[in-house]
């Protein structure tokens, strides 16, 4: 049921085995990479399955689009070597259970916006950039009916994803919108990358939030006052599933006059926010996460960052406090865009 489209032969013919050699959390040379990837492909145990911090990056690194990360997660589940302790897994799985009644299915006119499991952030959805949206999943009590489940890649539970995702897709489809902008980057990754990787049918066309913001800002071009702030972008792990949309970050920054600082950990070498690393079973995970966060923030500070721009609410909750203690103002990308057209950001701290 929903077989992962993975072809071991592609790996054999792959020259550089980028997925493992470019990994920023394990030091793996080409030779080791070759042997480990074949072991993983054939279902044997491998140190990679134990030490992987589930940062999604290898999905982007793989030049052949052979989904190495999806494979690693399936193997972790098969061999029962999940990165996170059992109670966290059970807690995570139970969090996704809706328990406050059925959602209200209404006819969603386009353009439609789906808040997924972040209905608590409805206060961000205001002003000219959002006023034409009809919003799906705006009630926090019913949001788990729209939960994209992809978070379980961190929990080595693709079985849970495959079991629940069709039902979620059906609920979203009932609203009738053919094109849906997803507030969260991971939802987009689910319906654009993961579903096709495992053969789940998606009857609507997902639209990346940043693509929508970029086009909308273009319409309102004359209302933009350049921000000329030095900004750094905290790239979320899920954005590795949609590398083709990553360019919108810089496009938006240029459009609104936000100066993207010159720093080491950007684009393909971006560092994870450490939110899931801190709880992993592997020895020293908590300190490893603190170290990753420290390096990432130090990198921002050294580059003279004034504002740290977030995409994913989980990254925001993990790092917003840390960056503000270093004098950098955390903001969601949508709020930054609203500031650029003279509106008062809702989440500004």
């Amino acid at each position: 049921m929903f077989e992962l489209k993975f072809d071991a032969n592609i790996c054999l013919s792959c020259g550089n085995c980028d997925c493992l050699t470019r990994c920023q959390y394990m030091d793996i040379d080409r030779e080791t990479a070759k042997t480990e990837i074949t072991k993983i492909a054939s279902g044997e145990d491998s140190f990679v399955l134990h030490d992987c911090v589930t940062c999604y990056a290898c999905e982007e690194y793989c030049p052949m689009g052979n989904h190495p990360f999806y494979l690693i997660v399936e193997r972790q589940e098969e061999l029962d070597i999940p990165p996170l302790p059992k109670p966290l897994i059970e807690r995570g799985i139970q969090t996704g259970i809706p328990f406050r009644g059925e959602p209200e299915i209404f006819e969603a006119k386009e353009p439609a916006l789906c808040m997924g499991v972040f209905s608590d952030l409805m206060y961000l959805i205001q002003g000219k950039l959002f006023d034409e949206f009809s919003v799906i999943s705006e009630d926090p009590r019913k949001m788990f009916h729209y939960f994209c489940q992809l978070m379980y890649l961190h929990y080595a539970r693709t079985s849970v994803i495959k079991e629940r995702l069709p039902g979620i897709i059906e609920t979203i489809a009932k609203h009738g919108a053919r094109e849906i902008v997803f507030f969260h980057d991971e939802c987009y990754g689910t319906y654009d990358s993961y579903c096709s990787a495992v053969g789940i049918e998606v009857p609507f066309k997902p639209v990346h939030l940043f693509e929508y913001l970029y086009n909308k800002l273009n319409e309102l071009r004359d209302e933009i006052q350049p921000l000329n702030m030095k900004v750094a972008y905290q790239r979320p792990c899920s954005s590795r599933l949609s590398p083709d949309k990553h360019h919108f970050v810089r496009d938006i920054f240029d459009l609104i006059g936000a100066q993207s600082v010159d720093r080491e950990y950007v684009d393909e070498t971006a560092l994870c926010c450490g939110g899931t690393i801190q709880g992993q079973r592997r020895e020293g995970s908590r300190l490893r996460s603190a170290d990753v966060q420290e390096r990432n923030i130090e990198d921002m500070v050294n580059a003279g960052t004034e504002v740290c721009v977030f995409n994913c609410p989980a990254c925001y909750n993990t790092m917003a406090g840390m960056v503000s203690r270093r004098g950098i103002r955390p903001v969601y990308m949508s709020d930054l865009c609203r500031l650029a057209i003279g509106e008062e950001p809702a989440g500004w701290r």
Binding site: P85, Q278, G279, R282
Partner: peptide, 23 residues
């Protein structure tokens, strides 16, 4: 304090997979 409690004291529950640190 966090290191003393969440690494030294509770670390082995995490490694054994019986306990989870939520931040």
């Amino acid at each position: 304090k966090m290191e003393l409690i969440f690494d030294d004291t509770l670390g082995h529950y995490i490694r054994s997979g019986d306990g989870g640190y939520l931040g």
